[in-house]
Design a protein around this nucleic acid. Structure first.
Lengths: 207, 207
DNA sequence: GCCGTATGTCACCAACTAGTGACAAATGGA
DNA sequence: TCCATTTGTCACTAGTTGGTGACATACGGC
């Protein structure tokens, strides 16, 4: 065998767009599997089967890659938009239920939410920005024309209920339950959401 | 100057108990400051001003040290035990309010709770064990003889409300708010807790 | 065909990590 | 006083990290 220095490199497809996509999907897989900890160029490059150098060349670094990944996460809401009817409480109940189901099936979003609670991070804040913007834009449409009953601080109440939803979802995924409430099976979640609906209905009921 | 190889070591007090305590307090400071990320023997030893070798000698490693730190965290509950009176809902309201205040002032506990959501960890589970045990033991005493109204799944409702409290506290500490609800100032929290009390009262009110 | 450029690969660096062996020095008992 | 044990210090290994420079190779325009 003559003077070829290296044996046989250049197996890859030599397609920038495809490679970028591989990195983005690899980043999502790493986050879904390991969470924010252990998230780095080495792990992502290994997962993608490509060289980390390309992360710097194509995305400018880890931050750029994560931002691109966040931009690809677009859907995840608005499903329950058409089916919502009834008074304010019923509509919000439908929204919360749909959102809870989506969140429970999206490990990447779960890890992102958990990461937010670990501490402030510029990277994370940029990833989150697009999502939050979409969320706030959709909210008025979800509400429709219905108004919450007087004497109820609806924004605060909704934030509290959404917070509970987030926390219970994360605890269910990591510890399988919280404060004596099991959150493993579908039946567990049915019970939890029933209590949730009761809470919501009693607060927003129109006397 | 004769053949003394090293200049002048041995400044420390040569007191094992005091050194162990220094490590435990240093670990708590590091967690409060940096959270679970960046938590390691090097950082803790530097914070304590002692050698990391002693962590292995005295605690058997990082896990042992963190466990000892968790064991020292004992108080933080039961303050609102005597003052609670009224029906079930009112008693629970007092408990939640006291708990929220304690949690908001305890950055170490906050980081521990956030860490739990990042993923399962044997270390963490052991740290948490003692705390949870104390919590569950106190609960019946907090309730007193009052019983929740029929038709309400009180354990589930309480778990939901406690989940919301945890999540809002963590979001307030890291991002300063959640879902449009600001959680920075005392006034912000007063508003949040007012909505919280409303939620609780409407659910546990005896018709 | 030829050649510049884009794409991919590898080797290396400095800095950090967890963990350990060897040693100095203070303490306390005999 | 002597000596064993404990307490503390330091140096070192091996591995991982983020990041970069140098290089090989394929592609596309001319």
């Amino acid at each position: 065998m003559p003077a070829r220095k290296k044996a046989a490199p250049a197996k890859a497809t030599r397609d920038r767009e495809a490679t970028e996509q591989r990195f983005i999907e690899a980043a999502a897989r790493v986050i879904a599997r390991d969470g924010a900890a252990g998230l780095g160029v080495n792990a992502i490059a290994a997962e993608a089967g490509a060289d980390k150098k390309l992360i710097y060349r194509y995305f400018g670094g880890l931050d750029g890659l994560l931002e691109a990944m966040g931009a690809n996460t677009a859907v995840w809401i608005g499903d329950a938009l058409s089916a919502s009817k009834g008074d304010y409480g019923q509509r919000m109940g439908a929204v919360f239920a749909a959102y809870a189901g989506n969140l429970r099936g999206d490990p990447v979003l779960q890890k992102l939410l958990a990461w937010e609670l670990a501490g402030p991070s510029d990277t994370l804040r940029r990833i989150d920005a697009a999502r939050s913007k979409a969320m706030y834009a959709v909210m008025p449409k979800l509400r429709g024309d219905e108004k919450p009953p007087e004497g109820v601080d609806a924004p605060a109440v909704n934030a509290i209920l959404l917070a509970a939803l987030h926390y219970l979802t994360l605890r269910g995924a990591t510890m399988g339950g919280f404060s004596g409430l099991s959150l493993k099976t579908e039946a567990d979640w049915k019970r939890a959401m029933a209590a949730f609906d009761g809470l919501l209905a009693r607060t927003y009921e129109t006397d």
